[in-house]
Design a protein around this nucleic acid. Structure first.
Lengths: 190, 190
DNA sequence: CGCGCAATGTGATGTAGATCACATAATGAA
DNA sequence: TTCATTATGTGATCTACATCACATTGCGCG
């Protein structure tokens, strides 16, 4: 499927745009492809785009002072990724995004997104719903982190995103769950 | 300050509405007041409103199978609260909201919010930004929960919301931080 | 095909924070 | 003011998970 179709189908799940509206909207995106391991956003960068994943897997993560990695999100096809904090408050990136596999994305600049939201009311509606979904998911994860132990969180993750099991190395899954890779290893060998 | 002014000032920080637009928007809100300890949303309820806090403090929280409480959010004046998951996906409430102090709120139904978003583009813009702010805050809290120990999280909270220290009982602060009340007590007595 | 590095497994030990148990304030309603 | 209830403090113990150390496996790449 072509990039244009993928995005169109994704948007259509939430709002309806005429073909002309969509074509205009789409014209503000830029296609980019990345190799496995390549960085998309690095801490300290100026951030001016958000990314719609066409193919492949990304991770957004934070590295603390002890050089320990925490994964905020895996991004899979049709998901959006960026350092939304930096993007919206126009500050330097505090998180990193890179590619777990080869990946293709569509990117749109912050300015263009805001312009589109202003010019096309349905686009603003779309982005409101997208963010809302992200917010709700983030709250759920917060609860899970406080309420469940590592094993329960691991099983929850596998039920929700079984694809991750095969594609994403275990030490990254551990960094998402908030446990050490050793603990994760012990969890699923018992 | 009157409810109308409080909301108006709050909205004006993000978008500008004409007086007529704002009056129309405001006409969809209903004023309600609650006593300390009173429940606003209870798990299992049908949720059809979101709440803008005029005065007082609310908490949104989850009770697990062991009857242990986890606080998702404290809501203070000019904050919004609801079970957004239930509200947007039209399912029964999975969280509770009640009053830490006497409180006054303005509530708007889901249907009316959506209607307002449709009829007044700036209102949709406002709600997009509000949700975006919530999303970013939630991601930050997630990182803090994975990265910092209880003491660091406690200090972070006090720096961010010093008012909570005097107003909110310590065992609720513990339930927000994700530690036991005993541990919290030991933390700040050393 | 085989070298080297990254990913994973597994034991031993350390520790933050939970849990239990009980004492001591506060608060608030009659 | 008194009594009951709720909030808080503090010791003793327990436990999930981290950390360290090292072995093993797998895989990208020349």
């Amino acid at each position: 499927m072509q990039p244009e179709e993928i995005l169109k189908e994704h948007i259509a799940k939430t709002v309806s745009l005429t073909d002309e509206q969509f074509a205009y909207f789409f014209s503000h995106f830029k296609y980019r492809s990345f190799k496995k391991g390549q960085a998309i956003i690095t801490e300290g960068d100026h951030v001016d785009c958000e990314y719609f994943v066409l193919s492949g897997y990304l991770k957004s993560f934070f590295i603390n002072d002890d050089v320990k990695m925490f994964i905020l999100q895996f991004a899979m096809p049709t998901w959006w990724a960026s350092d939304f904090n930096a993007l919206y408050s126009n500050t330097k990136a505090t998180i990193n995004i890179d590619c777990i596999t080869d990946a293709e994305v569509l990117c749109i600049s912050n300015a263009d997104r805001e312009k589109m939201c202003k010019e096309l009311h349905p686009v603003e509606h779309f982005f409101r719903w997208r963010t809302n979904k992200g917010y709700v998911a983030s709250q759920k994860r917060l609860l899970s982190l406080m309420n469940n132990d590592a094993k329960a969180r691991y099983e929850e993750l596998l039920v929700q995103y079984p694809a991750l099991y095969n594609i994403v190395p275990k030490h990254l899954i551990a960094a998402y769950l908030g446990v050490s890779r050793e603990t994760l290893s012990r969890l699923y060998h018992s």
